[in-house]
Amino acid sequence: MKHSHILLAGGKSSRFGQPKAFKNWNGILLYEWCKQALGGEQTYIVSHPSLVARFQERMEENIIVDLEPFSGKGPLAGIYTAMNLIESDYYTFLPCDTPLVEQRTIELLKREARGFDAVVPIADGRIHPLVSVIHHQAKDVVYKQLLGNQLRAVDLFQLLHTNYLEVECFGSKSWEFINVNVEEDLKELNKHVVQRFNLNDEE
């Protein structure tokens, strides 16, 4: 069973003031933190055309851009683009602004996706639809949502046979899903970076 890993990095980052993917946080770019969470396997990056050269400068090879006519229509466009261009059974998606997600959490979602169209984490009572695993058979549903200009990812998963997984019951932490929207959010990340590496004050 083929499983592909997709990093969503095509947003405008208008609130952040610069492309979030390339923000240096604790010596590593945000998108590189997320690649680590996806593991050592091949990762495809869905990005904006204006950012392709910057990724290539960092020796990234597997870069794709949103298919027309859906360019600029948010994460759902990136999800459809990946599902359309990459042949796979399952697709794991992770946005480039969630650097605290751990690899074991990604593996949990992949494992719990079997038998479902999709699996989406719930942490601290909140759904995180962009950190998801989706089966290839959901592609037509994504396409219809885009055609109808129904762009909220959370609405997509209501149309699918989705496993809403309360990840804290499996040992994951709610802070793994903190995402960066503004510079101030980096301070919140810093509160948890020690926990991210399972360290303690004595180490």
Score class of each variant (00 low, 15 high):
40 G>H: 04
67 L>S: 06
50 S>L: 08
169 C>P: 01
172 S>F: 08
194 V>L: 14
82 A>M: 02
132 S>E: 04
153 A>T: 15
69 P>L: 01
144 K>V: 13
100 L>H: 06
93 F>V: 05
87 E>V: 09
109 L>N: 01
110 K>M: 15
53 A>G: 03
70 F>A: 02
168 E>F: 14
74 G>Y: 11
74 G>D: 06
42 Q>W: 04
55 F>I: 04
34 C>N: 08
97 D>M: 09
111 R>S: 15
4 S>C: 14
201 D>Y: 12
89 D>N: 15
185 D>G: 07
21 A>D: 00
87 E>P: 07
13 S>Y: 01
148 G>E: 08
189 L>H: 00
147 L>S: 05
109 L>D: 01
138 A>T: 09
172 S>Q: 04
80 Y>A: 02
77 A>D: 00
32 E>H: 05
182 V>G: 00
73 K>D: 01
159 L>C: 13
158 Q>C: 10
61 E>M: 12
96 C>R: 00
161 H>R: 12
42 Q>E: 13
113 A>N: 07
162 T>Q: 05
146 L>D: 02
30 L>I: 08
180 V>H: 02
23 K>C: 10
79 I>C: 05
54 R>G: 00
16 F>D: 04
103 Q>W: 12
57 E>W: 10
134 I>M: 07
18 Q>S: 15
46 V>A: 04
45 I>M: 00
20 K>T: 08
31 Y>E: 00
30 L>P: 02
96 C>A: 15
73 K>W: 09
53 A>I: 03
107 E>H: 11
52 V>R: 08
52 V>F: 11
190 N>L: 07
72 G>F: 12
102 E>Y: 09
201 D>A: 13
168 E>S: 13
72 G>R: 04
98 T>N: 08
117 D>R: 03
68 E>S: 13
56 Q>R: 12
7 L>G: 12
140 D>V: 11
165 L>V: 12
103 Q>T: 13
93 F>L: 05
96 C>H: 06
133 V>S: 04
71 S>H: 04
66 D>G: 11
59 M>E: 10
137 Q>F: 07
191 K>G: 03
175 W>D: 05
202 E>Y: 13
34 C>V: 11
116 F>H: 06
57 E>S: 14
